[in-house]
Design a protein around this nucleic acid. Structure first.
Lengths: 187, 187
DNA sequence: CATTTCGGCAAACAGTTGTTTACTCAATGG
DNA sequence: CCATTGAGTAAACAACTGTTTGCCGAAATG
């Protein structure tokens, strides 16, 4: 799996070959079948590995309390740190979210969906949207998750200087959304 | 190019072969080189073709005036119509925006950048953000463009029933953003 | 200690890949 | 009307593809 991740730095998943993977891993071609039935099988395994750690992180970021701006700053920092630590995983998710291999695409969609559920639940139990309808809570949760993935994808392929710019923009965008949230009348 | 687009329904670009393309097009493999130097060459040509019509459309959508909600409804309708008419182009852009082939990725990024410029200019000449700093105008323009691309990507791989759901969510999200825009204090 | 499972190998298989070369043939333009 | 060009072809090339088969040693299991 590490070999595949390294190869995916320059290709996308549907262009990957198993001989290529086994060669990078220092194995014989036949050895691949001991671990995976398919290449898509490897793909969904990579999806799980890539999104495993993320759940707890964002839950923790939401658990913090304080000024809205501080909360936003912290959340963006958490994402930026994660991208810096696991760039290959982020790249993989960003590439294959709309990529050419159905099972992988669906695995990512399912994972992001349950991700949105968590965010919605966290939002719902918060004071500032007590009178909101569940659909509206999910809608803004989607907005947050999509924005997070997009920001992470942009950060992953940026050098250090432009990364700061992306972070600053993301912060302002989140602030604007939270402003809209405060004036929203659900019904 | 049409042959490539059709093949890209089930693969992504970095998994495409030129023999595959020429076979689908009903040509001899050597004929490919009469039109393109590379496969990436074909890729950037496809990017231009896919995003050519979009510029005028959104400019027209912004030119309309009326209630904010009507404007949002109309803009979303325009996008949904475009996706229904050119699903292959939208799929291609969504897939390769973060895809594995650098030249294609960069071509899309450049095109979306100039797209953001247009939206920012259109926003700046509007009444409701007269006191805004240029950076803030660009920031919200990015938000709109990203949201548009994401919505189009989601619509493209949805059946008719879920498409309506996506459209409704997109409308509400845009309404929330416009709400934040109204209460934003730039500077 | 015996045996079953796990992870690995080399070899072989027919197909497919990108690219080059030399060759046609219709259209276009002066 | 003659020359040039644009767009196509077939054939050949070595290199690479996914998959199967039978084999092997170590490790875990009873």
């Amino acid at each position: 799996m590490d070999a595949a991740l390294q190869l995916l730095e320059h290709q996308s998943f549907s262009g990957l070959g198993m001989r290529e993977v086994t060669r990078e891993a220092g194995m014989s071609p036949a050895g691949f079948y001991r671990h995976f039935r398919d290449l898509s099988d490897l793909g969904v395994a990579l999806v799980e590995e890539a999104l495993a750690n993320l759940h707890g992180m964002v839950r923790a970021a939401f658990a913090e309390q304080g000024d809205t701006d501080e909360l936003i700053d912290h959340a963006v920092d958490v994402i930026a740190d994660h991208v810096r630590k696991h760039p290959a995983h982020i790249r993989f998710i960003a590439r294959e979210r709309f990529g050419g291999v159905r099972p992988v695409r669906e695995a990512i969609a399912a994972e992001l969906e349950s991700f949105t559920d968590e965010v919605a639940q966290e939002l719902g139990s918060q004071s500032n949207c007590s009178g909101w309808s569940p659909e509206d809570v999910r809608m803004v949760a989607r907005l947050y998750v999509d924005h997070m993935v997009l920001t992470a994808a942009a950060l992953q392929e940026a050098d250090a200087e432009t990364a700061e710019l992306i972070i600053a923009t993301a912060r302002r965008q989140l602030r604007l959304v939270s402003l809209g949230r405060r004036h929203w009348t659900s019904g």
